[in-house]
């Protein structure tokens, strides 16, 4: 369970998040939607304790990330890139992460197998393609078999087969009662994966509900998104789409 309440983040005098609040519930895939620069990544960074909130709270199972007893067993997170040093091998990267949580070595090979990186485990991360880097980040997130998955633009850099793989994986996680929160600006992709939708624009939540509620009278989630964020009128000069 992820609960965000009254979250404000100011950076260099500019307000990036203006008191946002929403929650992601167990057993459901929650889509966190917004155009580039709307505040999606900033929200996730505060949630993961990477950045400090100016005001408000972002809690996981009722506590801030930094106070989790078993962080890797509670939350798995994929932000942009691989999150790994380019000079290390994929396996060496997963090994140090496993050590930090006291996980057995065998678990490293399990997640490598799970994300389909076993063949590249002995190669340096610097030689990985964009998609392989994302798979490694996914493997890192799954290492502790966490109850909550948090993903920032998970399908970026993945090929169609990778996209289908991740969609299946996320649905499976939710089906087993886990919480999945993913951010994206790819509407078409989201509509097929999510149960709940939260839309953020310019640091404010503009819509929050089930997929059906947010799509509402619009034909598709994409239309609803442009109507909510004003992105469509910006791009088409105010004309009807």
């Amino acid at each position: 369970m992820v609960t965000i309440d009254g979250l404000v983040k100011r950076r260099g005098g500019r307000e990036i998040l203006s008191g946002i609040g929403f929650s992601a519930r167990p057993g459901r895939v929650t889509g966190f939607l917004g155009p580039n620069g709307a505040g999606k990544s900033s929200t996730l960074r505060v949630l993961l304790g990477l950045d400090r909130a100016t005001a408000g709270t972002a809690l996981i199972d009722g506590v801030p990330y930094a106070r989790l007893r078993d962080p890797l067993g509670t939350v798995g997170a994929v932000l942009d890139g691989s999150g790994a040093h380019r000079a290390r091998t994929g396996r060496a990267h997963l090994r140090w992460v496993a050590r930090s949580a006291g996980l057995p070595r065998a678990r490293v090979d399990e997640v490598l197998e799970l994300v389909g990186l076993t063949h590249a485990a002995a190669k340096r991360v610097g030689t990985y393609s964009l998609g392989m880097g994302r798979r490694l980040a996914m493997a890192t997130a799954l290492l502790g078999d966490p109850a909550v998955l948090i993903l920032d633009e998970p399908v970026n850099g993945l090929d169609p087969e990778g996209i289908r793989w991740i969609r299946t994986l996320l649905r499976e996680r939710a089906a087993t009662g886990r919480t999945v929160l993913l951010s994206s600006h790819l509407m078409g992709e989201l509509a097929e994966t999510v149960d709940d939708v939260v839309v953020i624009d310019a640091g404010r939540i503009v819509a929050d509900g089930t997929l059906g509620e947010v799509t509402g009278a619009h034909r598709t989630l994409e239309d609803a998104f442009f109507a909510l964020t004003g992105g469509g009128s910006r791009l088409t000069g105010g004309g009807a789409r």
Binding site: A66, S82, G83
Partner: peptide, 15 residues
Amino acid sequence: IGGQIRTTLAAMPHR
């Protein structure tokens, strides 16, 4: 390098 700090702090949030 490579955003490893994010992985580090996710794994060990007690900075």
